[in-house]
Amino acid sequence: MDFTGKRILITGSTMGIGLGAAEMFLERGASVAINGRDPKTVAETVKRLGGDRLVEAPGDIGSIEVCRNVVETAIAGLGGLDCLVNNAGICDLARLMEVTEEHWDKMMAVNLQSAMFCSQFALPELRKSKGNIVHIASISGLVGGPSDSHVYAITKGGLVNMTRSMALELAKDGVRVNCLCPGYIDTPMIQAENEATGGQVIEFINQSAPMGRIGGVRECASSILYFASDDAGYVTGAILSNDGGCAANASWGGANHEDAAMPQAH
């Protein structure tokens, strides 16, 4: 896949899957706008990645106005846009009876509202370039999971179906919209949890994922590049799992009740 001359904005790209995708797009010739909440971290990430095909587009996309600023900054810096990757997301935990309105609003704003409005603000450019949008949902958008991530799963289920309607509405504009659902991926977030539990998290994943291991960041990010590429030119409204078989088994690994839950640091 060659992305020479392609202009990409990835929200939440200072770490994890977003960062992995940014690296891979860069290696294949694209220009990439890096986004994260903290301008300093964005600047450091750009410096570390190196080269002149990078744009800093910092901002907390939990507010619609910031979504607008981030997308406009990216478009100005990149000179247009070919692909928007709606990757930024948070996974604050709360058990069902402990979900507050504040928790709900924050999760919806960052995980769902941002995807809606970043897409809307990117559309004029994406229509010009016949570009595409990749939403990053989660296996938890497809099957139920741990009992403390209800609101996370609701946002991701929303994102999965948003993909379908958005794809249909934009099909005639030549703008493709697809959705990636990662399972357990070896991100700094999972690594931190693993360390805090003395290695139990990775052990749990190794036992419960059908493929018997956690996924690598690059082997997950590669699905984003596929969707963004011309190879996927006829692919729109698609939902792709990248999870070592977890969704096929309709399971995160027996994590739905406390006896079988993934170990957590407390």
């Binding site: 069902l96 139920g144 609701i154 289920g157 999965v160 179906n161 379908r164 009740h257």
Partner: peptide, 13 residues
């Protein structure tokens, strides 16, 4: 779509 998935999540919980 979010409601459909909310149902799965809550059914398990």
């Amino acid at each position: 779509g979010a409601m459909v998935n909310m149902t799965r999540e809550m059914a398990l919980g």
